[in-house]
Write a protein that binds this DNA or RNA. Structure first.
Lengths: 336, 336
DNA sequence: CCCTCTCTTTTAAACGTTTCAAATTTAGAT
DNA sequence: ATCTAAATTTGAAACGTTTAAAAGAGAGGG
């Protein structure tokens, strides 16, 4: 169907080998031949067949990125960063979103194993499904290079991890709310790590009260309705709330506002992620910044090095990026 | 490095051809042989090499999706829909975002030409860069199947288009604002089509006034600062504003609120896209729904059919999806 | 016992590159 | 004119599949 190297070679009057070398700028080929081949190739609109090249080169120049959901702005922004870095290194990015389903995750792992990508990055909220942790281990050990973003578990010789200190996110948020004078601070997340940070901050001031803790079983986003409903019924309401990401914080605010509760006057709310929109939300969202660009870039950088066969230093096997509290308008002081 | 078909064949005591057929569930192979091969393959953790398969099959089972930006929730949501449909048809999706740069667009087209994808979907705000319209035409004509989403130009035998009536988006929004009693209605977009709809609605009531029209030259998102600044200075301010997407509407609201302007009491604001967050924004955003899921799904459906060699019916070469006004809280009545 | 037909397996070409050893050409030195 | 070394080109293997044609093995009929 398409124009092949053979066509180019014939028209240029050289062998396939020579044509290939010319097109790959080998210095072994005579300048005249080179010119001839290039010109013929251009004339015929020759485009090298990436499939054939992939087979012989054992590499596709594609990197896979797996995220739980693209429609979560946090991951969209991360994907953007990863993509930009990948492109700079000459790679294309295949973006895979699992919607948190273990079988989708498994399908992608299968796909990766088949050799369609040169390496993969797994980004998660906190960890992969248990089942796939095992599959992933195997994947890495036997097939392709992998880097994890945000997983709190790995960080081995095989799978470097780029992460943040999850516990600290909620610690920072909670402590800030305490500093603002709040004493009844609510919390919602399915993450144990985050809960620990929340509890640590409160414990330091002897303010911890399990009544204000919500552990949604499923998807937090969906369970916000339940949390808000519960918040409306309870007799002593928290005056501040720590959400596990900006998306859920925003939903929560909206639902509360609809019930006539003012943010931040009645309840201060704090998110995590610093998604683009959090700055433009109304009220603008107090949140924890996560350096997505830096993390995405680092992940690609390390992955590319592993692909190239380099051995990464011990110090780079487990990198924790600093996070930062951004004080905005969704939180305010409270006088008991 | 990995286990190949040859290894499996040898261990199973059959030829490579037979092993291949067994693994592909061919009915030509004896049931005993089949079982033997399958069991050996499993034992050896054999995974077919997708690169080799792609070469001989002339197909990678990958579809490319090109969007201007992933971090725009509209495209993230569209990508989600496209991905889901693609997976259902057995394809993987390679997500490419161009950031509106013509050269990135061109690089992706080059990549597609090389045969790494079986087909491509180009989604845009309104149209591709001029330069690449030409490249794209050529791509389609000679290399791989393509479907356009949202482009207002194509819709040929070669490139089916899935789109909405852009003119109508702003017409609907503007007319609604007029119905609410507004007489000074502002407008911001670089889209001529959208401007036409805006103007048509106003003209019907003799309310058109060029003073209220903003044509940002570059990226609208960035130019919102300028528009808001200008809005603050002008002596007669519009009481309503039509934004060209939800993202910009949200930014605009936030900037206005920061200046002490109340939304919707002082200015009613209307977006377009109905991104997930628009419902959760504060105030919730009056906007135009665009059926992203349906459009994404249709795009895949048609593309897959073209890839399969089917000829699509004339009626499917240019499909316009219905849009719908969603009345929410960012707009309110106005008594002159 | 031979022929035919069906069922199964093998063989080998094909996919379109890259790459490296071998062959060829060219140039330079004697 | 001959030899050597360098420069260039060619040829062919390799990458790991799929697939169609050919070969082989049984079975059944005459």
């Amino acid at each position: 169907m398409g124009v092949t190297l053979k066509d180019v070679a014939e028209k240029a009057g050289v062998s396939i080998g020579t044509a290939s070398m010319a097109l790959n700028n080998s210095d072994k080929v005579n300048i005249e031949t080179y010119k001839k081949v290039i010109s013929v190739a251009r004339k015929l609109h020759y485009v090298p067949n990436a499939r054939a090249r992939a087979l012989v080169k054992q590499s596709t120049n594609i990197i896979g990125l797996v995220v739980p959901q693209i429609i979560n702005p946090f991951f969209a922004e991360l994907a953007q960063a990863v993509k930009d870095s990948a492109r700079k290194k000459g790679y294309n990015l295949i973006l895979c979103s699992t919607d948190g389903k273990a079988d989708e995750e498994a399908r992608y792992i299968e796909f990766f194993k088949s050799g369609m990508v040169d390496g993969a990055i797994f980004a998660s909220q906190e960890s992969l499904t248990n089942q796939n942790k095992i599959i992933l281990e195997e994947l890495i050990a036997n097939y392709i290079p992998v880097v994890n973003i945000n997983s709190q578990e790995f960080g081995s010789d095989l799978v470097p991890v780029i992460k943040i200190d999850l516990e600290k996110t909620s610690y920072l948020a909670t402590r800030y709310l305490i500093e603002l004078g709040h004493q009844r601070i609510g919390f919602g997340s399915h993450s144990l790590k985050r809960f620990e940070g929340y509890k640590r901050a409160l414990s330091e001031f002897d303010l911890y009260n399990p009544e204000f803790v919500y552990f949604p079983m499923q998807d937090f986003d969906e369970d916000i309705y339940a949390i808000v409903a519960s918040l409306m019924e309870v007799k002593v309401r928290p005056t501040a709330f720590v959400c596990y990401n900006d998306n859920s914080a925003i939903k929560m605010i909206q639902l509360l506002v609809e019930k006539g509760i003012r943010i931040p006057e009645d309840i201060s709310i704090c998110g995590t992620d610093n998604i683009l929109l959090s700055r433009y939300y109304n009220p603008s969202l107090t949140t924890i910044n996560i350096p997505k660009e830096a993390m995405g870039q680092k992940a690609i950088e390390i992955l590319v090095r592993i692909i190239a066969g380099e051995r990464v230093a011990k110090s780079e096997l487990d990198i924790t990026y600093p996070i930062e509290l951004l004080k905005r308008k969704s939180t305010t002081t409270y006088q008991g």
